[in-house]
């Protein structure tokens, strides 16, 4: 039955913090099997939207459905299909990489033998085996992203939601993460990730949505959104940035 449903469907999601409206009614359909990029400048509401979509932040209004299951009404079913890598959230970082994976796997109700096997494989592929029993808190930023991704992948979710997966990652690790995500999508999974790096989005995504000021400004396949221009041009036009005239900040050049 899940084939008829989009992998992720957001309807009218809204959230305000005190007086500031962070997300003002987001509607989004992420087709199953797509590689979906959520683009937006800093403070556009990307993290808030994704947090509400995966059950980390209660929305003021609206619905989020994962393959047809309501994240807020039927969290157990929905969360079982989800793999999440939040940004700006700590991991249980006083565990070693292997311990952290075991924790996540068992928490998802997986069989210990399967956890052992998959954890070893993931650590190997992500080149984290050398870290041995180093605690995750002592990992580098890129290693933390990789172990976070491993935790999200471990239980074989149908939908992967990643917040800024390429932030602070070196090119080698980024290439590795890209390859893994590609294989995941080829194998029938769906990926939604947020970013503000155009190159990555242009290279990876089949679909794109541009979010600014808490609303979706453009949405569609990469070709539809981009047209015959570069994605960056479209993005700057939609978001509406300012350019330095050269007059201000003159004290910088001395």
């Amino acid at each position: 039955m899940t084939q008829e449903h989009p992998a992720l469907a957001l309807r009218g999601l809204a959230k305000r913090f005190d007086t500031k409206v962070a997300v003002a009614g987001v509607d989004l359909d992420v087709p199953a099997g797509s590689f979906y990029g959520l683009l937006g400048p800093n403070g556009a509401g990307k993290t808030t939207t994704l947090s509400m979509a995966v059950g980390l932040l209660r929305p003021d209004a609206g619905q989020a459905r994962v393959l047809g299951y309501d994240v807020w009404a039927d969290p157990v079913r929905a969360k079982g299909l989800l793999g999440v890598m939040p940004d700006g959230v700590r991991l249980f970082d006083r565990l070693s990489g292997a311990e952290l994976l075991a924790y996540h796997g068992l928490l998802r109700g997986m069989d210990p033998a399967v956890v052992e096997q998959r954890a070893a494989e993931l650590l190997d592929v992500l080149a984290l085996t050398d870290a041995g029993r180093t605690l995750v808190v002592d990992y580098s930023a890129g290693m933390k992203k990789k172990i976070g991704l491993a935790c999200a992948l471990l239980h074989g979710p149908r939908l992967l939601v990643l917040d800024e997966p390429f932030e602070a990652v070196d090119p080698v690790s980024a290439a590795l993460i890209r390859d893994i995500l590609h294989r995941y999508v080829t194998g029938g999974g769906t990926v939604v990730f947020s970013s503000h790096v155009m190159e990555v989005v242009e290279r990876l995504c089949s679909h794109v949505a541009i979010l600014a000021d808490g609303t979706i400004k453009r949405v569609g396949t990469l070709g539809q959104v981009r047209g015959d221009r570069s994605l960056e041009e479209v993005f700057v036009e939609v978001v509406g940035g300012r350019t330095a005239t050269g007059e201000e900040l003159s004290w910088l050049s001395r």
Binding site: L95, S96, A98, E99, L101, A102, Y103, G105, L106, P112, V115, E116, A119, A120, L123, R133
Partner: peptide, 8 residues
């Protein structure tokens, strides 16, 4: 020492 679960 042992697998991931054993280490945890």
């Amino acid at each position: 020492a042992g697998g991931a679960v054993a280490q945890l």
